[in-house]
Design a protein around this nucleic acid. Sequence first.
DNA 1: ACAAAAGTGTTTTGTCTACACCCATGT
DNA 2: ACATGGGTGTAGACAAAACACTTTTGT
Lengths: 273, 273
Amino acid sequence: MSTWSAVASAAPRDRMRGERAERAEQLDASGVETPESPFGVTVDVAVLTVRHGQLAALLVERKYEPFRFRWALPGGFVRVDEELEDAARRELAEETGLVLGPKRSPRGVPSHLEQLRTYGAPDRDPRRRVVSVGYLAMIADVPRPEAGSDAATARYWAASDLCLPRLGQRRGTKLAFDHAEILADAVERARAKLEYTTLATAFVDETFTLGELRRVYEVVWGEELHEANFRRKLLSTPGFVEPTGTTAPTDGRPAQLFRNGGATTLHPPILRG
Amino acid sequence: MSTWSAVASAAPRDRMRGERAERAEQLDASGVETPESPFGVTVDVAVLTVRHGQLAALLVERKYEPFRFRWALPGGFVRVDEELEDAARRELAEETGLVLGPKRSPRGVPSHLEQLRTYGAPDRDPRRRVVSVGYLAMIADVPRPEAGSDAATARYWAASDLCLPRLGQRRGTKLAFDHAEILADAVERARAKLEYTTLATAFVDETFTLGELRRVYEVVWGEELHEANFRRKLLSTPGFVEPTGTTAPTDGRPAQLFRNGGATTLHPPILRG
DNA sequence: ACAAAAGTGTTTTGTCTACACCCATGT
DNA sequence: ACATGGGTGTAGACAAAACACTTTTGT
């Protein structure tokens, strides 16, 4: 088949690669001294939340070149003995003061962190080769810490104000590096995950009304949902939500409060238009 | 809220980090001389195909320590000026002779390559810190090149013979490094993607019968599908498959041949049990 | 009384499932 | 003739969408 077509010509060429390639192969898949070494490895965290009826992302203003004064995702270098996810949590805390809950608490704290994908275009940093592991965090809209924080330059931006590029495109905006692309991927991932997981609950408080949860879906997806059917769908999905027995006041009739049930994935998913 | 709880104590501590941290911050998100530099960056490719009625993965036998004589995913170091995906294609071609088709041909060659996720546990390589970007390739079951290839040690393994770990687990098998974990993630991703994309066509030839496509689903998911309903579902999904007008002989009545339509994602998805 | 949002009932509409059956070929 | 897989028809189960309506609060 065509997939194998280049084999005949590739094999002889490979054999002529010479000694340098031979030596690199001995060290393959993690050699000690290779010419391919001078990589920087960073993490960048796209923190999404729902604020004031809009999907929003947490950004920090850069203090130094390149992209000085431009807005960027919180992130930075991974330490040599550090797990990637730990690096993401640490950088997020250092640059924004935001400390995410533990990895997996029994009932699920209203915060979620997952790996998005890795961005490694050779020219994504103007100075040297840096490969960045992108992370997506979804958190409830909790008030920012007022004072005493070292994260004075961190703030939320409405996703719609950032002119994010379409999927797969590189062309940026006001954001530093390729962070607009990362953020666009994060938004797309979040949209998709609401369909087949219970992660919408990461965007609300530990207890919440079904109205609040529905508004999360509406804001993230940008479309209205039928209230009555949404309610039925959620209540009929085992483990999605669990009543607390308490109620919360609203502009109308008080609403029952729920918390996250044990479920994480949805079979079948909730479908959007 | 609790998510912000550690802020009050974290802020003063951060201020006491001293000059070293300050300097690292100046170089943040891609500094030139940091102590965090000595990372290796590799790619590892999990090539999946359907052979002899089984889901199979393409592995290579390691020639050198560590994990000498153990089976591993094809992969290796990313070059300094190389795109990650290009590195994946190059290493795959070098180590197995398999040359994947172009990124996006109009009708879609029967091969698919996508980033899986990045594996960066500090101890995943016994020698030094190596971060590996995992890739998933899905290809049709084309015959291996016979001779003249430098990939004498490459062969397919049935996924069921590899004792892959459950999702999220680290514990390995006969495979080198954490490659069993990567492969398990690859299989899980492939299973999921058959539900909401047209990627099943990546596992078959450029033209195929609906029976062949159905057997792909059955093998990957490990469950039987109702033939008649499968047919209706596919034909009613616009752009999934497109008749070629030709037929292929079978053990019974000859079957119509189809090719991939333009569609890539499925709304609504095909659901498995 | 009215607005506003929560919550329930019911009808309609479509889609998934299962079973029955016909079609076209090789032996 | 019959085995084998391709392909079509159709009735029932089930879930989603749409509409109407009741409930409980604040003003």
